[in-house]
């Protein structure tokens, strides 16, 4: 009897570990998405309903590049993925910049209008993807080295792409942190977030800060899209499946805190991934949601709230 308990305990541990590592891919996508959404919301109180479509765009850029490489330069296959990440960022950034200039900037201080307008935009972008790439699902051909798994012990397989995405997400968080808290641009963003009129009156071009912040948030979603191609196939509606989860991560983390966003993305991705092993996907999601709601009842300000007199 104790022996059986011991083995099943060891198995359980392996299951937890494996699902935990599998959860890192989800964590990376959640985190990159939530980071972008939180930056945009924090900076200009805009809720970007089209945020998911920037993931789709980033994913299509990656898939497109992978097809290009497979068809025209198969030798480059092992190396293209990092380039795809950069391209996904750049394309999503530029698209975000255009959207800010063409749409969002006219709607600041009108939260409901922005909600509707960006929702409409998400429809337009989805349809555009459908016309451009077809409604069928499409997958990126991944480099060999990302596909395998690493087994440090028997019965324990850790997928390499999960580790890669984890590293990517950590690097991006550090970059965003450095940008926000160590660079002059970040200073402008933080000042504008706190007091827009006053930021202008000390000499900050707040409109330009808005444009770049919005584009940066979209660019991060583009990177999330590149990451997403390693765990799913792309369709025009791929991003819209993630938008709700992303909102949950942001709200749960406490919208103004980088650390909160990281912890929240981690908690939600891991609980979902581990629960999914024991329950169906939908049930797992319900459990996660209930957990989030209970925690938000106890801490309405989210996991981490900033402590300062205002």
């Amino acid at each position: 009897m104790p022996l059986i308990l011991a083995t099943s305990f060891a198995e359980l541990k392996d299951i937890f570990l494996m699902q935990g590592f599998a959860g890192f891919s989800l964590f990376a996508v959640f985190l990159l998405m939530a980071l972008g959404l939180a930056i945009i919301f924090g900076q200009m109180k805009v809720i970007n309903m089209a945020h998911g479509e920037f993931l789709t765009v980033g994913a299509y850029v990656t898939v497109f590049l992978s097809h290009m490489v497979v068809n025209h330069a198969p030798k480059l296959l092992p190396y293209y993925f990092p380039a795809a990440i950069v391209c996904a960022f750049v394309v999503a950034f530029i698209l975000g910049y255009i959207v800010e200039i063409g749409l969002v900037k006219y709607l600041y201080n009108r939260p409901l209008d922005t909600l509707l307008a960006t929702w409409g935009l998400s429809m337009i972008l989805q349809q555009a993807c459908r016309s451009l790439f077809g409604a069928r699902e499409d997958t990126a051909t991944l480099p060999e080295w990302m596909m395998g798994s690493w087994s440090p012990s028997e019965g324990l397989d850790i997928p390499i792409n999960g580790m890669f995405l984890l590293a990517l997400a950590i690097v991006m968080v550090l970059l965003v942190y450095a940008l926000m808290y160590r660079s002059r641009w970040g200073l402008k963003v933080r000042a504008t977030m706190q007091n827009r009129a006053m930021a202008g009156a000390v000499g900050i071009n707040t409109k330009r800060v808005d444009r770049v912040t919005f584009a940066l948030g979209c660019g991060l979603a583009g990177i999330a899209g590149a990451a997403f191609t390693t765990i799913g196939s792309v369709s025009p509606s791929a991003g819209s499946l993630y938008i709700v989860d992303t909102f949950i991560v942001v709200v749960f983390g406490g919208a103004a805190s980088l650390l909160g966003t990281v912890l929240s993305a981690f908690t939600i991705a891991q609980s979902q991934s581990i629960l999914e092993f024991f329950l169906t996907g939908v049930l797992a999601k319900i459990f996660v949601l209930v957990g989030v709601i209970i925690l938000l009842m106890i801490r309405p300000q989210g996991l981490i709230a900033s402590k300062v007199r205002r």
């Binding site: 402008k188 933080r190 000042a191 007091n195 006053m198 930021a199 000390v202 900050i204 900033s306």
Partner: peptide, 22 residues
């Protein structure tokens, strides 16, 4: 401004630096 309106969560140094942007 009247009422000072410094940036509350920025450090004193960072508050001063916002003026240096120009």
């Amino acid at each position: 401004p009247q009422g000072r309106q410094i940036f509350p969560t920025l450090s004193v140094e960072d508050n001063i630096r916002t003026g240096l942007v120009t």
